[in-house]
Amino acid sequence: MLYRVIDSEELPSLVSAFMKDYEVVAPVKRDGSYVFDVIGSPDEIELSYETTISSPKKYLLPPDETLLAFDARANGVTDFAAQITPRVIFGAHACDINAINRLDLVFRDGRYPDPYYTARRDATLVVGLSCMPQSTCFCHLWDADEARFGYDLFLQDIGDKYLVSIGSVEAANILEASCKPREATDEERIAFRHVTRTRQQSFDHAIPDIQDVAMLMDAFHDDPFWEELGGGCLSCTACSAVCPTCFCFDIRDTFDPDGKTGRRERIWDACTSPQFALVAGGHNFRPTAARRVRHRMYHKLNGFLANHDRMLCVGCGRCVKACKAGINPIEVLKFFVRKGAEDAQ
């Protein structure tokens, strides 16, 4: 990996250089919170932002997208050619970059790549930005507090400078043309280590660091805890709406008013929705909120790991804030602590 240093005052020039050829999506402030949105000026970016309400996932996997058009009169189907916009996701935190890496495993790098996702991903550059954890962050538990790959540039704030990790030639060329990157000095490397150490020490250590979580999910699969935790679920699907790694979707056919032509669309879905496991004949194989919550947690903390060697949860903490019933992975970790204490008695 190639590292360079730029001065903080050069950052607007870097953003402006990206804006010449790309649509730039970055964190901005909206109604007291932060969101990823298309910017018209580098001045709109909030670099010291707290975790955004939702992730930049929607720019790679839209909430609603057309897959094909059909004409019942001619019994014809036309593949939908989406307009792919060259885009830069600027200022993504490490957890969101790791979330994109997990989506890549599902939609781009698998046996059957999704052409819609792949087209958007290939047209997107990712510029990461360092951060300090909030009280709801637990990305360090899932090894998602650092982005080791999946970005084109990563900016680590070291005071009035940025240590820039370069991940692609395309981004390196833009950096070189818009800024004056230089090799890091010993003092700047020391500053980087200091900032990294400070970030690691800033996590809420009251959040349990549990080993073998996947194994414990199996061991306590039938524990009454899941009724206790999931019984309060409102089935509002807010957790899935804000999650950067949820990728479940539904397919629907939407007809035009003439009833003869229409579109096949892909829309986000959520395993906590009461209709998610409803099948033909009216049977629902996850009929209760508790069972749906258990399934969601199991997939995040066990099932995905078995197939892809990493947790699906990246510990961003968005679901902690979004769920009004207090249902989140931290509560699962606390449960494992309680079970360990009971076994020790």
Score class of each variant (00 low, 15 high):
306 A>E: 14
206 A>M: 12
339 K>L: 10
18 F>I: 04
277 A>R: 02
323 C>H: 02
86 P>A: 09
185 T>K: 04
160 D>I: 02
335 F>D: 00
273 S>R: 06
195 V>D: 05
44 E>I: 00
77 V>E: 11
62 P>G: 05
293 V>Y: 07
333 L>P: 02
108 R>M: 04
234 L>D: 09
220 F>I: 04
259 G>C: 06
66 T>W: 11
190 I>F: 10
211 Q>Y: 10
168 S>G: 05
137 C>R: 08
191 A>T: 01
12 P>E: 07
26 A>N: 05
63 P>M: 03
236 C>L: 05
148 R>N: 13
307 N>F: 04
192 F>E: 10
14 L>W: 12
8 S>H: 11
246 C>K: 03
166 I>N: 06
204 D>T: 13
273 S>P: 02
245 T>C: 05
174 I>E: 04
217 M>W: 11
208 P>D: 14
193 R>G: 01
91 G>R: 02
198 T>V: 15
276 F>R: 04
164 V>S: 06
296 R>K: 13
264 R>I: 08
232 G>R: 13
186 D>G: 09
101 N>G: 09
123 A>T: 01
313 C>N: 00
150 G>Y: 06
88 V>I: 10
159 G>Q: 06
15 V>W: 06
41 S>L: 06
322 A>N: 02
334 K>R: 15
281 G>Q: 06
227 E>F: 09
328 N>Y: 03
187 E>S: 14
156 Q>D: 15
50 E>H: 13
96 D>A: 06
233 C>Q: 02
337 V>F: 08
146 E>L: 13
270 A>Y: 08
278 L>I: 00
270 A>V: 00
264 R>Q: 10
174 I>G: 00
103 L>P: 03
309 D>Y: 06
237 T>M: 10
46 E>I: 15
34 Y>C: 11
243 C>W: 11
33 S>T: 14
333 L>N: 00
175 L>H: 08
251 I>M: 14
266 R>E: 03
128 G>L: 07
23 E>S: 09
207 I>N: 10
247 F>W: 14
81 A>Q: 15
77 V>I: 15
203 F>I: 03
205 H>D: 13
241 A>H: 11
171 A>F: 14
76 G>R: 15
34 Y>V: 15
231 G>K: 06
338 R>D: 13
103 L>Q: 03
108 R>Q: 09
131 C>N: 08
200 Q>K: 15
103 L>R: 01
60 L>I: 08
168 S>E: 05
40 G>Q: 12
70 F>E: 11
215 M>E: 15
75 N>Q: 13
203 F>E: 06
158 I>R: 03
91 G>F: 05
275 Q>R: 02
18 F>Y: 14
234 L>R: 12
208 P>E: 13
331 E>M: 11
23 E>Q: 11
130 S>L: 09
339 K>E: 14
229 L>V: 04
25 V>K: 07
28 V>N: 08
146 E>A: 09
268 W>N: 02
85 T>M: 12
60 L>Q: 02
30 R>Y: 10
123 A>Y: 06
22 Y>A: 02
121 R>H: 04
277 A>K: 00
26 A>Q: 07
170 E>F: 05
155 L>G: 07
